[in-house]
Nucleic acid binder design. Sequence first.
DNA 1: ACGAGGTCCTGCGAGC
DNA 2: TGCTCGCAGGACCTCG
Length: 275
Amino acid sequence: MPELPEVDTYVRDLRPHLIGRRIIAATLSHANILSGVSKARLLRELTGARIADVTRRAKHALVHLDRGTRLVVQPGMTGSLYHAAGRLPADQARHVVLHARLDRGGALIYHDVRRIGTLRLLDERGWARFDAALGPEPLGEAWTPEAFMESLRGSRVAIKKFLMDQRKIVGIGNIYANEALFAAGVDPSKPANRLTPEQAGELRVHVRQILARAIAASGTTFRDYRTGSGEPGNFQFELSVYGREGHPCRVCGTTLTGTHSLDARATVFCHRCQK
DNA sequence: ACGAGGTCCTGCGAGC
DNA sequence: TGCTCGCAGGACCTCG
């Protein structure tokens, strides 16, 4: 499922194919994936626009158009964004939601099997509002130990839920929340405001390390995710807890515990290593 | 402020 | 073998 490292990989792979290209035709298969924009307006805005830049913010990929608007892609669970040089095989074409044909050949594709993702089209002001509702980037300079500690103080929710709350800090989903909490030795159910400064410091460091390592590995492929060039990521080989319920902890050998009691998400942890 | 639960959606694998 | 059913979950919603 695309979290920050996976979206970062899409953007990195897409940039050389998209920047400077013009969209000459666009089609959308399902309008219910849109938020705040009609199908007609989206297609009208895309058609004829030149792509000025492709960037990432949180778990969103941003395709900046020369008209001043941005296509904001939130891949949700199974969404992927990539450049296709030629015709797609039928089994893949079936799940294409947005197809934007480019001048000089090829196309920008948004593909989403379960269509839980969202597409938005925002102008400068709309983007400013949207961006302001998002928390700091975990790899950015604004997310200092002090800023993290301060935000923790104001919340009694389980730390795992806190990490996945995009208003508090962006980019972290279920997989990396599980991994970071294990690496930091913090119990996922511990209330955010009960973390000691030492635990908060450890957690911050491990969140950053894990995300950076996952970016370097082109993301985690658990099931559907593929990079922009169609390859699986490599971080799944480095996971310590996610998907390892019932297996021995890599540190102490204790059988890893699985639960769905936190926000109905699969949580896996070592009750001996995580306090 | 927070937890619990529903909603969107389809593919897959378990179980009968 | 072939069917049904439950599960996977990111973001957003309502209700208590």
